[in-house]
Simulated scan of single mutants.
Amino acid sequence: MNPRTRPSPPSHNEAEQRRTGRLDRQTILDTAREIADTDGLRALTLRRLGRELGVDSTAMYRHFRDKAELFSALVDELFVAVPQPDPNGTWRENLRNLMISWWRIYRDHEGLSEVMARQPDDEPRLFHLTEWTVRELLRAGVPANEIGHFHQAIYNHTVGSGLVAAFSPWLTTPEIRDEQKRIYAALDPGQFPSAALAAKSLYPETEEAYLFSVDLLLDAIEARAAREGTPQDRRTDAAG
């Protein structure tokens, strides 16, 4: 678990609301997210929520049918951070921004990453994310009958990379990355000539590596789409 900053003490109004047991949906979601981000998903129980809010754990059932519905609402709320693509931007700029925003949600919310990875696309924000991704792929010139494969490639890469950023300290912790570099730099070049040669460039900073991989994937999408037809961006430019 990455170290997290403990949330600040509740305001007077929040404290009073918790003391009197007057809850609302947003207060529960905010507290649940704080618990997951600080102490991990396993710590997020209805009993813990009740203790933090100063109410009986059964009070949550007035706002959520069960824990699964609470988790779904948490995921949906996190994806508010993904901005709607700029209608005046290029498909490539928009897809790049979508993938980066999407990835950062996983990186920044380790405690909820597991829930997000298991969550089906049955929440409003996730519908929007799919709609925006597909729209930009169509603008890139990807044939409609191939959209599924392109969309899945983007999904797999973004979510997979986000989970690595959340759960793999050997890639995300600078000290560990530096140690890996030293290990490779010390390899016998006679036995491992290629790895020893590349030692200084191995294990780059996590976000830098992800941004590079996004551009690599977008390059592949652009090249593949160019073989299939004329992207809408180009048709629009030509018409203008």
Results as ranks from 00 to 15, higher is better:
4 R>V: 11
6 R>G: 03
8 S>P: 05
9 P>E: 11
10 P>E: 10
11 S>Y: 10
13 N>F: 12
13 N>Y: 14
14 E>V: 07
15 A>T: 12
16 E>T: 09
21 G>R: 07
23 L>S: 08
24 D>A: 02
25 R>G: 01
29 L>G: 01
30 D>H: 07
31 T>W: 04
34 E>D: 15
34 E>K: 08
36 A>R: 05
37 D>Y: 04
39 D>T: 08
40 G>N: 05
41 L>I: 01
45 T>C: 03
49 L>E: 01
50 G>F: 07
50 G>E: 06
56 D>N: 15
57 S>I: 00
58 T>N: 07
59 A>M: 10
60 M>I: 14
61 Y>C: 02
62 R>V: 03
63 H>E: 03
64 F>E: 05
65 R>F: 09
67 K>H: 14
71 F>P: 00
74 L>Q: 03
77 E>N: 07
78 L>G: 00
80 V>R: 09
85 P>W: 15
86 D>H: 07
87 P>G: 02
89 G>V: 07
92 R>L: 11
93 E>S: 11
95 L>A: 07
97 N>E: 15
102 W>R: 10
104 R>T: 05
104 R>Q: 15
106 Y>L: 08
107 R>Y: 09
108 D>H: 08
111 G>D: 04
112 L>T: 03
112 L>H: 06
114 E>C: 03
116 M>F: 07
117 A>P: 01
119 Q>E: 13
119 Q>T: 13
121 D>P: 08
122 D>W: 11
122 D>N: 15
128 H>E: 15
128 H>K: 09
129 L>P: 01
130 T>L: 15
130 T>P: 00
133 T>G: 09
137 L>V: 04
138 L>T: 13
139 R>S: 06
141 G>Q: 05
142 V>T: 08
142 V>H: 07
143 P>N: 03
144 A>T: 15
145 N>E: 12
150 F>L: 02
150 F>I: 03
151 H>M: 08
151 H>D: 09
151 H>Y: 13
152 Q>H: 14
155 Y>L: 13
157 H>P: 02
157 H>C: 02
158 T>K: 10
158 T>V: 15
159 V>P: 04
159 V>M: 13
160 G>A: 06
160 G>H: 12
160 G>R: 10
161 S>I: 01
162 G>N: 08
166 A>M: 10
171 L>I: 12
172 T>E: 06
173 T>W: 14
175 E>Y: 03
176 I>R: 03
181 K>Y: 05
182 R>P: 00
184 Y>G: 00
188 D>H: 04
191 Q>L: 15
191 Q>E: 12
195 A>R: 08
196 A>R: 10
199 A>W: 12
199 A>Y: 11
200 K>A: 04
204 P>T: 06
205 E>R: 03
211 L>W: 12
212 F>G: 00
212 F>E: 07
214 V>I: 14
215 D>K: 02
216 L>P: 00
234 R>A: 15
236 T>W: 12
236 T>H: 07
237 D>A: 14
240 G>P: 03
